[in-house]
């Protein structure tokens, strides 16, 4: 089976709270919601973002708006205020999730 990047079928916005990174994952077509639920598990995201997320990843399903939310702990190198990272907020990491192939 052919693989494709999440970028092709979904969009995402990153957010930050302290050292926690939030990543939404929203399919362009609501009919792709089940596909994302089945193939983008918290475990798979944890593997994909192994260089970024140190802590646990919790996945929330929001069937009301056909979207997933990944809450990634210990992901911002200490958090927005004291990180040495280029992108202290982790704002650009939405597109890191969209690099994942399914």
């Amino acid at each position: 089976m052919l693989t494709m990047k999440l970028y092709n079928i979904a969009h995402s916005r990153a957010g930050d709270k302290g050292n926690t990174l939030t990543l939404s994952l929203i399919p362009y077509q609501e009919t792709d919601y089940n596909l994302l639920c089945n193939s983008v598990t918290a475990d798979r995201v944890k593997t994909h973002l192994k260089d970024v997320v140190v802590g646990e990843i919790i996945r929330y399903e929001l069937p009301n708006i056909h979207a997933l939310l990944f809450v990634c702990q210990q992901a911002l190198m200490g958090g927005v205020t004291t990180s040495l990272a280029m992108d202290t907020h982790g704002k650009a990491l939405s597109y890191a999730l969209l690099e994942m192939e399914i």
Binding site: H11, S12, R13, T20, T22, Y28, L62, I65, L69, V71
Partner: peptide
């Protein structure tokens, strides 16, 4: 799409 992205922005427990 813009509304969904913003609804989930910086939400750590929906």
């Amino acid at each position: 799409q813009t509304a969904k992205e913003q609804l989930l922005y910086e939400v750590i427990n929906p």
